[in-house]
Design a protein around this nucleic acid. Structure first.
Length: 437
RNA sequence: GCGGAUAUGGUGAAGGGGUUAACACGGUGGAUUGUGGUUCCAUUAUUCUAGGGUUCGAGUCCCUAUAUCCGCCCCA
C-alpha cells in the first residue's frame, strides 16, 4: 500500500520528548515569575473574527495573517497576543480590576517565509499591565524588574536590559523636522546593531536626510557612558522640544525606580538605539540581550503604549508590556548549546515485575509511590529482563524497582539506582524513606 | 514579495558516467531468557525529490517541476 509521507509544514516546530521537557521547564519558570509579580492567567481563542484582529490593519500584518472563510464567517488566526488582549480588555472592561495585569503564553501564527529563527507557529510569553485612564511610571520600572528576576532564574548567563524612551527619539526627530519620517528613521536606527553605523548613514542618505540631520542623529545615538552620564548628556543637549524633554524626564525617573527595585546596575543600561519596530509604542521601550551571545539579538522586548484599545472602545487604557518569542529563543538556545536536554522522561521510578503473576503486589508498590508524589511507571509485558532494563535505561529513569517471587514472599523490593548501578533490598515499609534520602 | 544555494536511508553523510550505493550513528535480533548503560556478531536504501532528455550504460551530465535551507523586506 502506498504510504502517506509523514511530514509537517515548514516553519512549524515540534520536539522530541527530551526537548519538550526542557521547553516545558522554561514555560514553568516563566509562569512562576509572572505569577510572583501578580499577573493573572489569560487564554483567548486562537481564531478570531478578521475584523477584530485586523482593526488596525495595513502593512505586514495583513499580508502575513492566516485568514480563511468558514461558511459566511471571515476568520483569522491570531498573529500576536496583544491585539486579542486589547479586544478582551475592551470587551470585559466592566469586569476587570485595573491596573489589569495579565500574562498569556500561547501560540500565534504568521504566514511568513520561514528561515532561521523565523517560525509560522510560535509561542509568545507576554505580560501586560493595563491602566484605566492612567498608568503610573513605576510600572515602567517594574517590567525590567520582572525581566531581571526571570533571566536570573532561567540562568542563561549574563544579560542586559536595554532601555530607551520613544519620546526622546520622537522629540529629536520633531526638532529636526523629521516628524513624518520618524517611523522610517526609527526602523533604521533599530538596525544599527545588525548593519553597523556606516550602513545606517547610507540608508539615511537614501532617504534624503541632509548632513546636519544625519550628524545630529548619529551623534545622538552614539552618546556613551553609564546611565547617569547618558542622562546628563541628554539634558545638556539643548534640544528644545517638549516631547524630548518629557521623554528624558521619564527615562530619568524610570532609571531611579529601577534602582529602587534593587536591580544590579550592570543588568540595565540606557541604549538610545533601541527603537522597536512596532509603531504602537509611545514611551519606555526595552530589549534584553545575552551578553555572551549577541548573535541571538533581543530575547525579550516590549514597551509602553498610550492607548491599547483605541480601535474597540472610547475608554483610554494605557499599558505596558513585554513579549518573549519562546519558540525562537528555544531554538537559538539549543543551537548555541546554552541549554541542553538531559532527560528523556520525567519518571522518578520505574517498577518492573519479572512477570505478571504478581500484579497485585506490583501495583500496590506503584500506588504507594504515586500517592507520595513519585512519578512512577510500571513496565507491563512479558519481555526479557534485558529489554525491560533497556527501556529503563533509554528513558533515563533514576530508580528501578524489581519485583519477583523472592520480593513478594519477603514483602520487600529490589531497588536499583540506575546511575550508580547499586542495588539493595528494601522493605516495603522503608521504601519511601530510602527514596527520599 | 525579491535574491542565492541545496536535494542520496530513521539520522549525519561518501560516491563527480561502468556490475551487488562506502562509512558512522540510530533501530531490531542474538552472544548461559532475575538486570541496562561497555564489547562482539547478524540485520537494517531492489535505489539516490519527481518527471523528462543525452548515453550501450545516469545519484553521477542537461532540462523542467517541486521541496527545503539561507539572505532581504518585516518581525518574535
Amino acid at each position: 500500500m502506498q504510504k502517506v509521507q509523514p511530514k509537517i509544514l515548514p516553519g512549524f516546530m515540534e520536539l522530541l520528548p527530551s526537548d519538550q521537557i526542557l521547553f516545558n521547564n522554561m514555560i514553568d519558570t516563566i509562569r512562576s515569575v509572572y505569577e510572583k509579580f501578580g499577573f493573572l492567567p489569560l487564554d483567548t481563542p486562537v481564531i478570531e473574527h478578521s475584523e477584530v484582529l485586523l482593526a488596525k490593519a495595513g502593512g505586514e500584518t495583513e499580508k502575513q495573517i492566516y485568514r480563511f472563510n468558514k461558511g459566511d464567517n471571515d476568520l483569522s488566526l491570531r498573529f500576536d497576543l496583544t491585539v486579542p488582549l486589547a479586544r478582551y480588555v475592551a470587551m470585559h472592561y466592566n469586569d476587570l480590576v485595573f491596573p489589569f495585569k495579565r500574562y498569556q503564553m500561547s501560540k500565534v501564527f504568521r504566514g511568513e517565509r520561514p528561515q532561521k529563527g523565523r517560525y509560522r507557529e510560535f509561542y509568545q510569553c507576554d505580560i501586560d499591565i493595563i491602566g484605566n485612564e492612567v498608568l503610573p511610571l513605576v510600572y515602567d520600572a517594574e517590567i525590567p524588574a520582572i525581566i531581571y528576576e526571570l533571566f536570573k532564574q532561567l540562568n542563561f548567563g549574563d544579560f542586559v536590559i536595554r532601555i530607551n524612551n520613544r519620546k526622546i527619539l520622537n522629540g529629536l526627530f520633531s526638532y529636526l523636522n523629521l516628524d513624518n519620517l520618524s517611523a522610517d528613521v526609527m526602523r533604521i536606527i533599530d538596525k544599527i546593531d545588525k548593519i553597523g553605523k556606516d550602513n545606517v548613514i547610507e540608508e539615511f542618505k537614501d532617504m534624503n536626510l541632509n548632513e546636519e540631520q544625519i550628524n545630529t542623529i548619529i551623534n545622538f545615538i552614539t552618546i556613551n557612558g553609564n546611565n547617569d552620564e547618558i542622562i546628563c548628556s541628554l539634558k545638556q543637549n539643548n534640544i528644545d522640544n517638549e516631547v524630548y524633554l518629557d521623554g528624558v524626564n521619564e527615562l530619568e525617573t524610570v532609571i531611579k525606580y529601577i534602582r529602587d527595585f534593587g536591580l544590579n546596575e550592570s543588568n540595565f543600561k540606557i541604549d538610545l538605539t533601541i527603537a522597536r519596530g512596532l509603531d504602537y509604542y509611545t514611551g519606555t521601550v526595552y530589549e534584553t540581550n545575552l551578553i555572551k551571545y549577541p548573535k541571538l539579538g533581543s530575547i525579550c522586548s516590549g514597551g509602553r503604549y498610550e492607548n491599547l484599545t483605541g480601535y474597540y472602545t472610547d475608554q483610554k487604557l494605557p499599558g505596558i508590556g513585554i513579549s518573549i518569542g519562546l519558540t525562537r529563543l528555544f531554538s537559538q538556545l539549543k543551537e548555541e548549546k546554552i541549554i541542553e536536554s538531559t532527560r528523556n522522561s520525567l519518571l522518578d521510578v520505574l517498577v518492573i515485575p519479572f512477570d505478571d503473576t504478581y500484579m497485585d503486589y506490583t501495583l500496590k508498590v506503584a500506588n504507594k509511590l504515586r500517592d507520595n508524589s513519585f512519578k512512577t511507571d510500571v513496565y507491563y509485558g512479558n519481555k526479557g529482563m534485558k529489554q525491560k532494563m533497556k527501556y529503563a535505561n533509554r528513558l533515563g529513569v533514576p530508580y528501578v524497582i524489581l519485583i519477583g517471587t523472592d520480593e513478594v514472599e519477603k514483602n520487600v523490593v529490589s531497588l536499583k539506582n540506575m546511575i550508580t548501578g547499586e542495588q539493595e533490598i528494601v522493605n516495603i515499609d522503608n521504601l519511601l524513606d530510602v527514596l527520599n534520602k
